[in-house]
């Protein structure tokens, strides 16, 4: 099954930072919401060459998977 980004919005996380919540829509019409921490969001924006959050709409879910993996695998300190 495939999925794509159908909506993006900002949300307040409990750590006092803004997070990006991405809505994925699946082939069967199902939806899920994935919050992305700033580090992951920045990687995702770069991967998708997105200038603004709206540019993420229509992108494949695989970009989110890859951005999460890249963030997990990067040593930040």
């Amino acid at each position: 099954m495939s999925a794509w980004v159908s909506d993006v919005r900002l949300a307040a996380a409990h750590e006092g930072v803004a997070e990006l919540v991405v809505t994925l829509t699946y082939d069967n019409g199902g939806e899920s919401h994935i919050p992305l921490a700033p580090e992951v969001s920045h990687i995702l924006m770069t991967r998708c060459a997105a200038a603004s959050a709206q540019d993420l709409i229509g992108q494949s879910w695989t970009h989110i998977r890859d951005a999460l993996s890249e963030a997990y695998n990067s040593e930040i300190r």
Partner: peptide
């Protein structure tokens, strides 16, 4: 960088 500016 804060995501508050992600729509700009």
């Amino acid at each position: 960088p804060s995501l508050l500016f992600i729509r700009l």
